[in-house]
Computed example of a mutant assay.
Amino acid sequence: MENFFTILGGMGTLATESFVHVLNERTPIRSDQDYLNYLLVNHATVPDRTDFILGKSTENPSSELKKDLRQYTKLQPDFFVLTCNTAHHFFDELQEVTNIPILHMPRLAAEVTSQKFGKKTGKTRVGLLATEGTIKTKVYENELNKFDHLDVVLPDTNLQQEVTNLIYRDVKESHFCNEELYYQILQKMTEEYDCDVMVLGCTELSLVQEATQNEKYPVVDAQSELANETLRLALKNRK
């Protein structure tokens, strides 16, 4: 197979399924042959990224991801797609083990946030919704703070717990897209935290966004932007 890319997924599996669905849905097609060539790696047994970052586990997920990258680099894909936001904490060390470029989801989301929601005067208040692990690593903060006109707003402990419940208790454990809780979180970020836009920095949140088709509250869905960039590059690389 030529002109293909490799998706490193399974973190979690439902979110990976959502990414592939969005990617296929957005691909312009007239026949089966118009779909993109890609290899999907659903590595569901990669240790939990947040647990490791928060010190709740000694199992380092980057070790497994490095093995994947070394294994699939041998096939020489055009690029890698890493569908887990929290795993981007290990991005630099992952990129070091392969000469194949890895798309950087938080960076893409930050660029889109700046382009679409940056104000001509004053700062845009950007609410960040993600796992505790992603918040702690500052992988999104660092990318968003590269733009002087963006102010990153983080949930307090109580609201972060609601976000965590939505991600882990509802989506990961129960396969439940809790629409009511999702809208409550977005409403609080908009009205109580005075946010102009929310960045969805977790693929489980992207899954809920896709399911609800929320248009009431302004969001930048990192997984959606990753799908857009994947599609752009894949079509560009076609012969």
Rank of each mutant, 00 (worst) to 15 (best):
N165Q: 14
P77E: 02
T203Q: 06
P101M: 10
G9E: 02
L23A: 04
L159R: 08
V41I: 15
L23T: 01
D48T: 06
N42Q: 13
T190S: 15
T212A: 11
D196M: 10
D194R: 12
L150D: 02
K119G: 04
I135V: 13
K146L: 14
C84L: 09
H175G: 08
I53C: 01
F19Q: 00
L39P: 05
C84K: 01
N178A: 04
S174V: 11
L144I: 06
Y72F: 15
A211M: 05
Y38L: 08
Q223P: 08
V208A: 02
V126Y: 00
S114P: 09
I167C: 05
N237D: 08
E59G: 10
T190K: 15
K119L: 11
R49H: 11
S206D: 03
D221G: 06
R107S: 13
R26A: 05
K239V: 12
G55S: 08
Q160D: 10
T190F: 08
E59Q: 15
E25W: 12
Y72I: 05
N145I: 05
T164W: 03
H88T: 04
E2R: 12
K123D: 07
L65Q: 00
L150Q: 06
D151N: 14
S57H: 04
N99V: 07
L150P: 00
L65I: 02
L14W: 06
I7M: 05
L181I: 09
T113Q: 06
Y140H: 06
S224M: 10
R232N: 15
I185P: 01
T230E: 01
L14S: 12
R238W: 13
L14Y: 07
V139K: 02
S62K: 03
Q213D: 11
K216S: 14
N178D: 03
K66S: 04
T124D: 05
M11T: 02
K123S: 11
N85Q: 06
D68I: 00
Y217T: 08
L231M: 10
S31L: 12
T50K: 00
T157W: 09
N37A: 10
A110W: 00
I7A: 02
L226N: 01
N214H: 10
S114F: 15
T190M: 12
T98A: 05
L14E: 11
F117C: 05
A109T: 02
L82D: 00
G12Q: 03
C195H: 08
V171H: 00
Q76F: 08
T137G: 07
T16M: 08
N178S: 08
T98R: 10
T83C: 07
V152L: 04
N214W: 04
E59P: 07
E59C: 12
E96G: 06
D170A: 14
E93N: 07
E141M: 13
P28K: 03
K236W: 06
E204H: 07
D151I: 11
L65C: 01
L39T: 14
T45M: 13
L39G: 11
D196L: 06
D92L: 11
C195W: 01
F52E: 01
E132Y: 11
T157D: 14
K66T: 02
H21E: 12
D194K: 11
T58F: 04
